[in-house]
C-alpha cells in the first residue's frame, strides 16, 4: 500500500465554505476534486499538501449549459459528463473526441474539468482543448470573481493563475457557427498520457477561407498549449494542403517537447506536424458539413 504523508482533511459543501477552508488552512492547503492526479502524487509523496479541502460536495458546479453566446461548464463537471454532453456534441465535436481518449472510464467518472485544468499537467488534454477554443476561466475568491483567458490560465507546468484562497468555478467557451472541430492524440496505450496531441477548430467563411481557427497542443511544451503564429498564418486563407502543411510545420517547429520514455524530441515534433494536419483537415471537413 502506498501511503501519503500526514495531512488534514476538510469537506466543503459550498463554494464559500471551500474558500473559507482554504483561508483557514493557509498556503499548504489544496483543493481535491476527483483526486485522480493529486492522490497518486500524494501516495508517491511527490505532493505533500498540509490539508485537503474536498469539494466533491459542490454538485452545483456540475453543469454544462448554454449561457447567452457561450457554453458554460461548471468546474465540478466530471469528464464523463463532458463526454456525454449533448450541448457540447452539438457545438464542438472536439470535446467528445478528446474525452474518449482521456484516461479510462473509471477516471472519467470521477475526474473533473476544474481539477484537470488546475492540475496543469503539460500533457493534459482538456487544457489543449480549451486553449484551442479560446475559453475563459471564472475564478472566485472571498473578494469576488475574476475572469481569465484560458491561454493565460497556465503559468507553467503544474502552475496556474489560481492563487491562494481562490477556486476555479467555471469555464466558458464562445459558441461559433460554420465551424468544425477535432482532436487527435497518439498514446502508447489506452489510458496513458499523450505522446503528443493536437486539437483544432476551424470556422470557414462563405468563400471557404478560414474566418477563424484555434489550435491546441498537449504534451509537447507548446506555450499556453497552443501556437498562435500558426493560427495567424491560416486566418483569412483558404485551407489548402499547402496552408495546412505550413501551419503544421510551424507548430512542430515552435513547440518544445522533452524526450522521455514516450518518445524522443524528433518524433514528438514529427507527431505534432502529423496531428495538427489531421485535426485541421477533419475540422475543415466538418465545417463544410462533411462526415469526417
Amino acid at each position: 500500500m502506498q501511503v501519503p504523508a500526514p495531512f488534514e482533511y476538510a469537506r466543503a459543501s459550498t463554494v464559500d465554505e471551500a474558500i473559507e477552508l482554504l483561508g483557514r488552512h493557509g498556503a499548504g492547503a489544496r483543493l481535491v476534486a476527483g483526486g485522480h492526479s493529486l492522490l497518486p502524487m500524494m501516495k508517491l509523496r511527490l505532493a505533500r499538501p498540509d490539508a485537503l479541502v474536498d469539494i466533491n460536495g459542490l454538485s452545483d458546479l456540475d453543469y454544462i449549459r448554454v449561457d447567452g453566446d457561450e457554453i458554460a461548464i461548471g468546474a465540478m463537471t466530471r469528464h464523463a459528463g463532458v463526454l456525454g454532453s449533448a450541448v457540447l456534441a452539438e457545438h464542438y465535436r472536439i470535446f467528445a473526441e478528446a474525452e474518449r481518449v482521456i484516461a479510462d472510464p473509471i477516471v472519467r467518472n470521477r475526474g473533473t474539468v476544474g481539477g484537470s485544468l488546475c492540475q496543469a499537467d503539460p500533457a493534459e488534454d482538456l487544457s489543449a482543448v480549451f486553449a484551442a477554443l479560446r475559453g475563459t476561466a471564472v475564478v472566485r475568491s472571498a473578494s469576488g470573481s475574476r475572469t481569465v483567458a484560458l491561454r493565460e490560465f497556465h503559468t507553467g507546468p503544474y502552475e496556474t493563475v489560481v492563487g491562494e484562497g481562490e477556486i476555479l468555478v467555471e469555464v466558458r467557451v464562445p459558441i461559433r457557427t460554420h465551424l468544425g472541430s477535432a482532436y487527435e492524440k497518439v498514446e502508447r496505450r489506452a489510458g496513458d498520457w499523450a505522446i503528443a496531441a493536437a486539437g483544432a477548430f476551424v470556422q470557414l467563411d462563405d468563400a471557404g477561407a478560414v474566418r477563424d481557427v484555434g489550435l491546441g497542443l498537449a504534451a509537447v511544451g507548446a506555450e499556453h498549449y497552443t501556437c498562435e503564429e500558426a493560427e495567424d498564418l491560416l486566418r483569412g486563407r483558404p485551407l489548402s494542403d499547402e496552408a495546412i502543411a505550413e501551419a503544421a510545420a510551424l507548430c512542430a517547429q515552435r513547440c518544445q517537447p522533452q524526450a522521455d520514455q514516450r518518445g524522443p524530441v524528433d518524433y514528438k515534433r514529427h507527431l505534432v506536424g502529423v496531428l495538427v494536419g489531421r485535426a485541421l483537415r477533419r475540422s475543415a471537413g466538418r465545417a463544410r458539413g462533411e462526415e469526417v
Binding site: V186, R188, I195, R262, G263, P264, Y267, H270, L271
Partner: peptide, 8 residues
Amino acid sequence: FTPAMTWR
C-alpha cells in the same frame, strides 16, 4: 513497438 520505437 511503441509508436516512437516503430517510427524510429
